[in-house]
Simulated assay, not measured.
Amino acid sequence: MPKRFVVAASEFPDLPLFAAGFELAEALTVAAQQLHDTVTPHNTMRTAVRLAVHLLPGADHAGISVIERTQHRRTVAWTDEVVRFAESGHTGREQAPYWENLWSAPVVRLEDSDADDGGAALSELGLRSALSLRLRADRRRLTVLTAYSRKPRAFDEVATRVGRLFTAHVSLALDSATVREQLTEAMRTRDLIGQATGILMERMDMDAAEAFDSLVKASQRENIKLRDLARRIVDANNAT
């Protein structure tokens, strides 16, 4: 009787030399460059799913989802609409038993959706096998890249190892894009607060320290984020 799904729990500390090693290395280098050229996490994930189809042996479609401990799953990037349909059909534990294993294993393979009781939604869409790889993990949620194939048992150990190498690059690029986005937002917030402080200085004849202190106290009093209060003051000033 065929095994319904395989959990590849190994961290693959000793990666093998592939027969086409130079070709794989070159492909991963190009992929890494494309990933690191993205400027936001969303663009990084959109680029990652497109690259996954080209790099992972056997992959026909790919998607990235965020899985909550509550079993809620949100698809954030996809190559085709079939991926969104496939993942929206798996929202409960009984429907997707192999996803549950991602909390304890970095990689999970679904060998054949026709043979797996939880793979009916995939089978109906013509998707016979899947390879899920963790990108991020904490106590509350997982970020997972899943490759899908129209063939059963499409993802072997080689595909899994290539997937592990690829997702390592994706994770690094995603972290880098997240930091850049946070820094950009921090600079925008600083500029916004600076503008609001300047407006208060002019209107209320205050120095910079007094104006900023007034802004902070108003934020606490009204239970509103300092950034949002600053934006409100700037927008009101621009409207006059």
Results as ranks from 00 to 15, higher is better:
43 N>P: 00
104 S>V: 07
213 D>F: 03
206 M>Y: 12
240 T>K: 05
49 V>P: 03
165 L>F: 01
8 A>G: 02
213 D>Y: 05
95 Q>F: 05
44 T>N: 15
229 L>I: 03
35 L>S: 10
198 G>M: 03
194 G>W: 00
103 W>Q: 05
124 E>I: 00
133 L>H: 07
26 E>P: 00
109 R>A: 10
75 T>C: 13
146 T>A: 14
238 N>T: 09
201 M>G: 03
95 Q>H: 13
149 S>Q: 04
134 R>F: 01
37 D>L: 14
64 I>S: 04
184 T>L: 14
17 L>W: 10
139 R>P: 00
92 G>E: 14
135 L>N: 08
186 A>M: 08
66 V>H: 08
230 A>R: 00
124 E>K: 10
200 L>F: 03
233 I>F: 07
102 L>K: 08
28 L>S: 09
237 N>A: 15
127 L>D: 01
225 K>Q: 12
81 E>N: 13
192 L>T: 14
21 G>S: 09
100 E>P: 00
164 R>W: 06
91 T>I: 12
11 E>L: 14
186 A>G: 08
196 A>W: 00
182 Q>W: 04
69 R>S: 13
77 A>Q: 09
108 V>E: 11
43 N>K: 14
47 T>R: 15
16 P>L: 06
39 V>R: 15
193 I>H: 03
207 D>K: 02
136 R>G: 05
